[in-house]
Every structure is written in structure tokens, then in C-alpha cells.
């Protein structure tokens, strides 16, 4: 958060404390030729990317480039928007995510999501965490699940004495960590984050970023962010999207470049990527 300006940000790609071989991707998602339509309008076109297991993948780009739209395909949240439909193919561990036999509810049990604006339920802190396990049929050991999820989300110490309080009494940053804890409580494999820090102050943002690093030991994380420094700080790979205008004048989103984060921020292969990360874009 300290660097502000138009120069290439100080890149602090994740240190070697979590060793991994980025080249040998263990794919969780495999996206090929993905286009997303709202009615007849193709909002995003021709996206190909592979999301690696227990990596943090960042999706960056200007507003309207379709990065959130793509993110919402990974847990089929777009199904809830009337008229939205995905073409192309996304596989999850080799299984077609949009196959006829696939139950979107089961998809969302494996693939959790955290939203831009913290959206805790207007219930107690405890009930917020217990909600997911309960609706998924868990009845016993709820206290343990709640404590574990809150601990993993680095919130336990702050709320352990007020679990019965309304979640809306927490600060914005705490609410967002609560939402992360709520997602964790369902024991997903993947956590999708749609600009999780854009409504938070810098201190709360730092906490969430630290948390993401911590969580990536156990979870695959895909994050959409407007904040390039954030992508540079936390992610292993970065996908740069942009908005283009096609021959008939229709604006749509495109994936421009997808690579290791260190390369995207130091040696991008596409001029548009370079322009964007150096602040020369639009």
C-alpha cells in the first residue's frame, strides 16, 4: 500500500517460505474458450487459463473487462442472473463444471466465495459461521467448527467473547474476515474472492492479504482485484484482462496475458499489459 505512483511497483512476489514449483501446474480449473453471455451480449470472449492447486491466482484489469464475470463462472454464481450463460468449457479436476449432471449447490460447497462488500447475515457471529455447515447437514460439533473457522480467518481472538453479538456490530475489516471464516466453515477446496478489500481501509486490507497468504497453504484462491500492488504482493499468477471494442462497436472483455506474477509485473510480453501496470492505460 505504500507505493503510490505510476512507476512499476516494487514487486514483492511471495517469498520462498512456501516452496512450490510454479511451472508444474497441478490444475484445479481448466478454462478453454470461455465466453459469457448476458442475453445475446457476449460480455467476455475466448478466455483460456489454468488455475493451479493451492496457488493464488489474481485477475486484474480495468472496469468492465469481465474479470468478475469470469470469476463467477467458477462457482456458477452467474446461474442466478436471468439470461446469463457460459459457452466454452471449464473443468474442475477434469469434470465439466457446466455438465448436465452437475449440481450447482454441490459446486458451491466445494468452491466458496467472498464478495466485494462484506455481506454477513444479520445474525449473530456464531450463527453466521454455523450457517453453512448447518444447511449442508452438519449438526454436531458446531462449536468446534466455529472456533476452527474463526481461528483460520484470524478473527477468533477478537470475537471469542462476543459470539452471540450481531455480526453487523463488527468493523468492515472484521466483517470481511467473518465472511472468509464463513466460507471456510463449509470446508471448500477453492475460495473465490471478488475484490475482497475494495471496501476496506489499508490496515484491514493488509490483514486480509496476510490471511490469504496463510490460507493458500490449504486452499486454492482466485482473487479479482483492482489493486495491482495487491496482485503483485499476494499472487503466484496474474491474469490481465482488458476491455476491447469489436468490429461492430460492441465492448467486451478479453484475457490479454496470463503468466507468473513476477513476469507480468517485470517483463510482460504484451504492450497493453505493460501500459496498464505502468499506469499509462486510459
Amino acid at each position: 500500500m505504500s507505493e503510490i505512483g505510476t512507476s512499476i511497483p516494487n514487486v514483492t512476489v511471495r517469498g520462498p517460505e512456501v516452496p512450490r514449483n510454479i511451472q508444474a501446474l497441478d490444475p484445479v480449473f481448466n478454462v478453454s474458450g470461455l465466453s459469457v453471455f448476458y442475453g445475446d451480449y457476449a460480455a467476455v470472449r475466448g478466455v483460456d487459463m489454468v488455475i493451479g492447486n493451492r496457488e493464488i491466482t489474481a485477475m486484474i484489469g480495468p472496469s468492465g473487462c469481465g474479470k468478475s464475470t469470469v470469476l463467477r463462472c467458477f462457482n456458477r454464481m452467474n446461474d442466478l442472473i436471468p439470461g446469463a450463460r457460459a459457452a466454452g468449457k471449464i473443468t474442475y479436476h477434469g469434470e465439466d463444471l457446466y455438465g448436465d449432471h452437475v449440481d450447482p449447490i454441490e459446486v458451491r460447497r466445494r468452491i466458496g466465495m467472498v464478495f466485494q462488500k462484506p455481506n454477513p447475515f444479520p445474525k449473530s457471529i456464531y450463527d453466521n459461521i454455523a450457517y453453512g455447515p448447518r444447511v449442508n447437514g452438519r449438526k454436531k460439533g458446531m462449536d468446534g467448527i466455529v472456533e476452527e473457522a474463526l481461528t483460520k480467518a484470524a478473527l477468533w481472538d477478537e470475537v471469542k467473547d462476543k459470539l452471540k453479538q450481531n455480526a453487523l456490530s463488527l468493523s468492515g475489516g472484521q466483517q470481511q474476515r467473518l465472511c472468509i471464516a464463513r466460507a471456510i466453515a463449509v470446508r471448500p477446496e477453492v475460495i473465490l474472492m471478488d475484490e475482497p478489500c475494495s471496501a476496506l481501509d489499508p490496515i484491514a486490507t493488509t490483514k486480509i492479504e496476510d490471511l490469504m497468504q496463510e490460507l493458500s497453504r490449504d486452499y486454492t484462491i482466485v482473487i479479482v482485484t483492482h489493486n495491482m500492488q495487491q496482485a503483485a504482493r499476494v499472487s503466484d499468477r496474474t491474469a490481465f484482462f482488458t476491455a476491447e471494442v469489436d468490429d461492430s462497436g460492441v465492448r467486451h472483455g478479453r484475457l490479454v496475458e496470463y503468466d507468473e506474477t513476477s513476469r507480468i509485473f517485470t517483463n510482460p510480453s504484451d504492450k497493453r499489459t505493460e501500459d496498464y501496470i505502468t499506469g499509462r492505460f486510459g
Binding site: L80, I105, R108, K117, G132, V135
Partner: peptide, 17 residues
């Protein structure tokens, strides 16, 4: 607010839940 619905759907809730 729709954000509450989205939060619930993202936690693998059915429409009735």
C-alpha cells in the same frame, strides 16, 4: 439486499433454504 442472497447461495444453499 441481494448481497445477502448471494452470500447464502455461495454457501451452497438451495433456493428454499
Amino acid at each position: 439486499p441481494n448481497s445477502l442472497r448471494e452470500g447464502a447461495y455461495a454457501l451452497a444453499s438451495s433456493r428454499m433454504i
